[in-house]
């Protein structure tokens, strides 16, 4: 049997509290960036809870993936859209699941093609283990043990909930 999965609204509530308390965000509020698709849902929810003024940015990292030459183009690629200049700003990058770290690396590469942010803070709902790069969350919802042959996935946008997916 798999562990019971945490309740997303509770995780978000907790994460929002810790984000608001970060010293880096005391002077100016962060700019929120969500990674397609799950990270964007979470970013939208956090954006609401934190009552941020500036609009949300969204990233589709399809063109930055390091496995592009192996798996080809994502047929459902969406435009990335950052509705503000990133230079000198504090960014809060949001994604649902942290696994190998490669998605976050791609996202950071993409962000730097928009300009030079003052800082990037990483917020993640679930760290499922299995990192291959030295990347970890600054704000983490929870850690999960994921047995071999299993994946954990965020479904949404309404309701936002975690579920187990079994792979063959």
């Amino acid at each position: 049997m798999n562990d019971p999965l945490p309740h997303i609204p509770a995780l978000l509530e907790d994460m929002a509290g810790r984000i608001a308390a970060l010293p880096r965000f005391q002077a100016t509020a962060p700019l929120l960036v969500g990674i397609q698709t799950g990270g964007l849902w979470l970013a939208e929810a956090l954006h609401q809870r934190l009552a941020l003024q500036e609009p949300l940015g969204k990233l589709d990292i399809s063109f930055y993936r390091d496995d592009f030459s192996r798996i080809g183009i994502n047929p459902s690629v969406q435009p990335s859209h950052l509705p503000w200049a990133v230079d000198g700003r504090h960014l809060l990058l949001v994604d649902d699941i942290l696994y190998t770290g490669r998605t976050i690396r791609a996202a950071m590469n993409e962000l730097f093609d928009y300009g030079r942010p003052a800082s990037i803070t990483l917020a993640i709902a679930v760290d499922r283990g299995g990192r291959e790069l030295p990347i970890q969350a600054d704000i983490l919802g929870c850690r999960l043990e994921v047995p071999a042959g299993q994946q954990v996935k965020l479904s949404g946008p309404e309701p936002l909930q975690l579920e187990w997916v079994t792979h063959e």
């Binding site: 063109f63 435009p79 990335s80 859209h81 230079d87 093609d113 300009g115």
Partner: peptide, 11 residues
């Protein structure tokens, strides 16, 4: 449509 924004960025 996804690639259009590339032209508007710093890099």
């Amino acid at each position: 449509a996804s690639l259009e924004q590339v032209a508007k960025r710093a890099v």
